[in-house]
Simulated assay, not measured.
Amino acid sequence: MAAQMNASNEAGNAPRAVRKRVKNGANHLAGYIFISPWLIGFLLLTLWPIAQSFYLSFTDYSLLEDPVWTGTSNYVNIFTNDSTFTKSLSVTFTFVLFSVPLKLLFSLLVAMALNQKLRGMNLYRTAIYFPSLIGGSIAVAALWRNMFGLDGYINQVLAWFGIQGVGWITNPDTSLGTLILLNTWQFGSTMVIFLAGLKQIPQELYESAAVDGANKFRRFISITIPMLSPVMFFNLILGVIGSFQTFTSAFIITKGGPVNSTYVYALFLYEKAFKHYQMGYASALAWILLAIVGILTAINFAVSRYWVFYESEGGGSK
């Protein structure tokens, strides 16, 4: 009798299980249909060009003729025979080394100033963030070139105080500094992220520390920095990646000069591809840049466990 009941239940459950699988399959199909435009775009406009670029990095390709397979010759030439590669990489590392910390520091200071409870603070935040909406445009780069030219606005202001200005963008000693300053000035997005992070810090922590006698500097070191460290880490990763890709400012303001003092890696890659039509060589340069950024990102993630604080992990560092 029990065996017959079990057999009857199994027979009843079988159609139910089939209907459930059919329903789940229909739901999955509907989901894939809805995301199909993105999937098609990703496959055709992102994944396929990446695969093509990797293939072309092993070829000699000039856009005018079919690519010719040359193996690893592009990579060998880059690392052994191309002094411009070394120079551009050195300039780019210098740019990243100075611009990223300065941008993070300046953004944090501005975010802390805008985190105060003052009347009209929303207006101040909007006014300070507004220039960043056009911060990476060609127009801003052209304006920067006019400001720091020999007859630019900066030298005109210095002349009021009897100070002899210099050609900031034509002097090899100061040209890269102008680009670093421009990158630091484009702090809007980083500042907004810092401001959001500051607003997530519980005010009770500051109040308790103040009761215990901690001054503002002590509260900043012991509360603000640890609680804000995940946001700092996020901005650091974005800053490093973005700085390695800097191009517009060097292309518009200095053209890589003078004496290649601002000849950043992205400008070198661009000229190889669209000035000399060495697409295979440029593809190899692009993959080397990807490897460098990937290695630095991995190092940052490995080191982050020693200084990034995650409250969700028991109040300790990762």
Rank of each mutant, 00 (worst) to 15 (best):
E10K: 13
F187M: 02
A284P: 00
I180V: 12
S83F: 15
F309C: 05
A284H: 00
D60H: 15
V211M: 11
G315E: 05
R119F: 15
G120Q: 12
F85T: 03
V96P: 01
L182D: 03
R305M: 10
Q245Y: 02
I288C: 07
A141Q: 03
I169M: 00
L29A: 15
I128N: 02
V140R: 04
S73D: 15
H276K: 15
M112R: 07
T174V: 11
S132I: 05
W144A: 00
F301T: 09
F161V: 06
E313I: 15
F34A: 04
V110C: 04
P67K: 01
L158T: 08
A266V: 07
G135C: 12
K23L: 12
G188A: 05
N155L: 10
S83Q: 11
W287C: 06
L198S: 05
S36P: 10
S229Q: 06
I288G: 03
N27H: 15
N300P: 15
G314N: 08
G177W: 06
N9D: 12
F301A: 07
Q278R: 14
G41A: 15
L176K: 01
G294H: 04
Q4P: 13
Y265F: 02
L108P: 00
V76D: 13
S57V: 01
S249Y: 08
T174Y: 08
I221A: 14
L114N: 05
